[in-house]
Amino acid sequence: MEKANSTLGTQFILSTFSDLHKYQTVLFVVFLFILVITVLGNLTILVLTCSDSQLQSPMYFFLGNLSFVDICMTLVTVPQMLKNFLLELHGRVISFEGCIAQVYFFLKFANVEDFLLAVMAYDRYIAICDPLHYVVVMHKRLRIRFIVGCWLLSTANAVLHAGLTSRLSYCQSNFLNHFLCDMVPLFKIACSDISINQLVIFTEGSIVVAGPFILIVVSYIFIMRAIFKIRSAEGRRKVFSTCSSHLIVVTFYFGTILFTYFRPPSSFSQTKNWVASLMYTIFAPMFNPFIYSLRNKDVQQAAQRFLTKNKPV
C-alpha cells in the first residue's frame, strides 16, 4: 500500500445523505424499519423453505438461498447507515480496512445474487421446457454444486476488486459522497491511476454481470417459446405464473446494477447513482420475499401451515 494511504486514507467519512441533515432522525426510523422488514421477510422465506415438506423442490431450495443472501446484503449496508444517521458528519468515519472489507462483502453478496438469479432462471427453463426430466436433471448434488459455484466465483471476483481498490492512494480527500464504501465513489477521490480498476470492471466485471444476465435472457427466450406453444390462455397463464416473480426480481435487480456500473462517466449523476444503489442494495432485498410470497400460493399455504402448527394453545 502506498504511503498516501497512511495519512488521509487511514479512514473515510461517509456522507450518508448529509445534505438531508434536517431529516436524519426520520431517515434513521425509515431505514431501521426497512432493516427489520427485510430480515424478517427473508428469514420467513428461509424458515419455510427449510422446514415445510411441500417446499422441498429445487425452486424453493434456490429461493431459500436467495433469501439468505439478501439478509447478508442488508446487514453489510444498513447498520452502517443507521449508525451514521445518529452522528454528525465529521463522526461518520470508517477505517480504511473497514471500507475495503465493506467493498469485499458487498461485491461478494451482490455477485452471489447475480449467479443465483441465473441458476434460478435455468431451473425455471428445465421445469417448463422439460418437465418430465425436471426432478432427474435438478438433482440434489447438482443444486449443491450450483450453490458452491456461485459462492466460489463471487468470492474470487470480490477478492480481485477489493484487492485492486486497496492498492489505490487517497491523498486528496477522505470524504466519500455515498452511503457505503463502493468502488465508484472510491475511484472519485483516488489520486492514483484508476485505469486498471476501470479496465477490470468493464472486462472481467462485465463478464460476471453480463454472463448471468445473458443466461437469464436465453432461458426466458426458450421459456416464452414453450409458453406460446400452449393453446389455452389459462394454461399459458398458469405456466407463466411459475416464473413471473423471478422475472420481476431479475428486471428490478439487473436494471439498477447495469445503470450504476456500466454507463459512461459523462452521464454520471450522484443523485441517480444514490437512487440506483439504494434500489438493488436495500430495496431489492426488502421486496424480494414479498414478490415471491404474494405471487406464490405454495409459499402462502406453507406460511399458513407454519402458523397453525406453531399457534399457542
Rank of each mutant, 00 (worst) to 15 (best):
M81S: 04
A121N: 14
L86K: 08
A158W: 03
A156V: 10
V112T: 02
Q102F: 10
C150G: 09
H161T: 04
D70S: 15
L89C: 05
F115L: 13
V76P: 00
Q102M: 14
R92C: 08
Y122Q: 13
F85R: 04
D114I: 08
V78P: 01
T74H: 04
A121W: 04
D130A: 14
L142S: 10
G163D: 08
A121I: 05
F115P: 02
Q102L: 11
G149D: 07
T74Y: 00
Y104N: 08
F105H: 09
L82S: 03
A158P: 01
C150M: 12
M73L: 12
D130P: 03
L116N: 09
L66T: 07
Y104P: 00
Y125S: 06
G163S: 12
P79Q: 03
H90N: 11
W151P: 01
H133K: 12
G163P: 04
L75N: 00
F115D: 06
D70W: 06
N157I: 03
Y104W: 13
R145Q: 14
F106G: 15
I147A: 13
I94T: 01
K83A: 09
G98N: 13
G149I: 07
I128R: 12
L107T: 02
E97I: 05
Y125T: 02
E97Y: 12
M73T: 10
I94R: 01
C150E: 15
R141I: 04
K83H: 06
F106H: 13
I128G: 14
